[in-house]
Structures are given as C-alpha cells and as structure tokens.
C-alpha cells in the first residue's frame, strides 16, 4: 500500500515535470490565439529555443545566459510570424508551419556546424543547467504520512522553471481578465473593428501578444534542454508544441482549463512511461502507444462538440484589414 502510494506520488511528480513545457506553450498559445492569430508555430519556437539555450549554456557555462538567448530567438520567430500574418496578411497556418519546418532544419544544420556531434549539443555540466531546488524542511517533514510525503515527493525538488510555468498561469489569468491590455487583447481576437474604432492599433496589440507568446515558448524550450534534459537532442520537442496546442483547445482557450488539460496530458505521459513494458492483469502488455495517443483523440472529440463545446476566438485566422 505504502509502495503504491509512493508510486502514485512519483507519477504526480513526473506529471509536473512533463507538463511544464506544455503549460508554458499553452499559455503562449492563449496569448496569441486570443489576439486572433493562429499559432501552430509553438513547436518550432520551442525547438529553436531549446537549441539556443543548450548551445549558449554550453558555450558560456551559464544556464541563465542560455535562457535569455532562447527567449530572444523565440521572440524573433514570433515577430517573423507577426510580419507574415499581421503586417503582410498572409496565411497564419502556413507561416506557422514554415517556422516549424525551418526550426527542424536550422537546429540540426547549425548544431552540426558548431559542435560536430550530429546535431546534438555536448552534455551540459551541473552549472550549465537549472538544478532542482529542495524546499526547506523537505527531509524533516517528508516522513509525515500523506501531507509530508506529498510535500517531499511532489512539491519539493523542482527547478525554478517549473515554478515559473505554474506562476505563468496565474499571471496569464490576471492579465487577460483584470488589465486593460488583456481586455484589448481579447477584443482584438473577437471584434478587431471595435478596437480599431476606439483608436487602438490592432496590429500593435497582436504583435505584443506574439512577443509574449515568444517569451513563453522560449522559456519552454530552455526548460527542455537545460533543466529537464541536459543538452539539446535533434527533434527534442517531439510534438510537445502540438500537444500544448491541443491542451489549449481542450481548455477552451482559458488559462485554468488549459492548465488542467496540460496536467491531464502530462499525467497520461507520465503514466505511459511508468507502464512501459509492464504486464497488466487481464490486458497483458500495457498499451503505452494508445495511452500516448489519448490527448489527440480527446481533443478531436471535444472539438467536434461531442462533449461540451470549444469555441475559438471569433476573429481567429483572419488578417485585419483597416476600413478606409
């Protein structure tokens, strides 16, 4: 029983770690899509920043420097997406897709040129990574039943970026609902002409949203390569940007809902990796591949309106043309 409890807690602990990049990217997606810009380039931005973070961390021996450059690169990609989809009024999906493919090619090409290790960065040393932070008294109260074990195994021992991700959700919720910028952001995604007639620039608001999205994807990428992992591996995002997109939709474009979806999807992944190769009673080998496919399936079902209804922002995907 005690063992099972511990297993459960360890799975929750893994859930937090797996969900962190999803949460950051889902919040990025909310900012972008609430402003009316479809953002399937979460994946590419995260991949590029994962590469940038590990590269800079390896070259400068500073994880922080890596994080800053990662954010910078991701914001630049966000601006490129803005140039295509806001200024030039091109197709937002195509622009996002282009960024994803670009990131796949560029990370490996530049990675080989710098490190000659087949597209990877060297394994990062202790100081080049964000280390887990043990919370005070974790050892002492860790032996307490229930509360103590939860504190020690699940809450303590995460790195700073995990905390950042969870804090981002609260900040996103406050910004969206309680600030003037948040109101404008939501308005620009629902009825841009209203904002325009109130004298607020639609383009500026959308650019600002894309910059915030870039920052968040940058943190997510840095987390993957310099906190969760210890170095960049080619294609290391492995579709996480798309899962985050799914989580955002699953959470109906709301920070709280998206957080829960990210935790659910993260939990599924954590369970799947624990069940790898495990023989279950009645079923036999655990169907790990199918568990991993659940996020996609659930999103399709939800989006089709079979359970509840996920409504995207009304003006999403439409470039705004100022009335003359």
């Amino acid at each position: 029983m005690v063992d099972l409890w511990l297993q459960f807690l360890l799975t929750l602990d893994a859930t937090c770690r797996v969900a962190t990049p999803l949460i950051l990217c889902a919040m990025a997606g909310i900012f972008s899509e609430k402003s009316g810009v479809i953002d399937i380039s979460l994946e590419g931005k995260m991949l590029m920043s994962a590469f940038a973070a590990a590269t800079v961390a390896s070259l400068t021996s500073s994880a922080l420097a890596g994080l800053i450059v990662a954010i910078g690169i991701s914001v630049l990609l966000g601006l490129l997406h803005g140039l295509a989809s806001v200024t030039l009024r091109g197709n937002q999906v195509i622009s996002g897709l282009a960024i994803n493919i670009l990131a796949s090619g560029l990370t490996v090409t530049v990675g080989i040129a710098i490190f000659q290790q087949g597209g990877q960065t060297p394994t990062l040393e202790r100081d080049e990574r964000f280390r887990p932070v043990e919370l005070p008294l974790a050892e002492q109260i860790g032996n307490f039943p229930v509360v103590g074990t939860i504190y020690k195994e699940v809450i303590s021992g995460h790195n700073i970026l995990v905390w950042t991700a969870f804090a981002t959700v609260i900040v996103t919720a406050i910004v969206l609902t309680k600030t003037r910028f948040g109101l404008r952001l939501r308005a620009v995604g629902e009825k841009p002409e209203a904002l325009d007639s109130a004298g607020v620039s639609v383009a500026k608001t959308r650019y600002f949203a894309l910059i915030i999205a870039g920052v968040l994807c940058g943190i997510a990428g840095a987390y993957l390569s310099t906190a969760h992992g210890s170095g960049f591996v080619r294609e290391m995002t492995a579709g996480k940007g798309y899962i985050a997109l799914a989580a955002m939709i699953f959470g109906k474009w709301q920070p709280r809902g998206a957080l829960l979806a990210c935790l659910l999807f993260g939990f599924l992944e954590a369970v799947a990796s624990r069940l790898q190769g495990v023989q279950l009673p009645l079923i036999g080998a655990a169907p790990v591949d199918l568990i991993l496919a659940l996020p996609y399936l659930l999103t399709v079902i939800l989006l089709a309106g079979f359970v509840g209804k996920a409504m995207p922002p009304r003006a999403i995907g439409e470039p705004y043309i100022k009335e003359r």
């Binding site: 030039l88 091109g90 937002q92 622009s95 282009a98 960024i99 493919i101 670009l102 796949s104």
Partner: peptide
C-alpha cells in the same frame, strides 16, 4: 523547404 513555404505562403504578399 521551410523558407520556400515561408516565402510562398506566409510572406506571399
């Protein structure tokens, strides 16, 4: 390939 998609799609205009 990514650049071609970008130039002929996203940055089409």
């Amino acid at each position: 390939q990514g650049l071609i998609i970008l130039f002929s799609g996203g940055l089409a205009y």
